[in-house]
Amino acid sequence: MRQSAVYEQPRARVMTRVKRVLLFALLWWLLTEGRAEAWGMGAVLVVAAALLSVSLAPPVAWSLPGALRFVPYFIWRSLVGGVDVARRALSPARPLQPAVIEYPLRLALPRSRLFMAGVISLLPGTLCTEIVDDKLWVHLLDRRGDFQRDLGILEQKVAGLFRDENRPEEG
């Protein structure tokens, strides 16, 4: 799925379909919880769904090292976010200092922008309310904290995941 630029080449096309079939076979295995007798029906459906999916959802460029960097970061930060908001909800004082900030996006691809807007809602203290041109409107639970920097780190990881052209500079 990485070589979306050379998608027209016959070899890449075959590889795309093989990967899709494997992906849908995995899904079928999970859905049937590994029951062997389900594979008769499954074989037909998996191939049909895989071929159909190639035209409905063309392959997207992503990078495995980018994903390996993104997933642990995401899990850790969403855990921190959950603990943070749970603490605020459970404490009698209900400490909140909401604010709305604008964050200028450097990501170029629509899918990575949308992905980022979604992921923001799971990270500590941030919630994306609107994407206007090149800006994200972010609602903050607590305005204390360097959110421009945190969002910059997230943006870099998202860019790495989707091999976004418009990568922000390191550091």
């Binding site: 969403s78 959950g82 908001v85 749970a86 909800a89 909401p98 809602s121 799971l122 919630l127």
Partner: peptide, 16 residues
Amino acid sequence: PDVYTRLHALTKADNV
């Protein structure tokens, strides 16, 4: 107090 802060609580806490 408002819909935005409630969304924060709902989305983050329930997913964790």
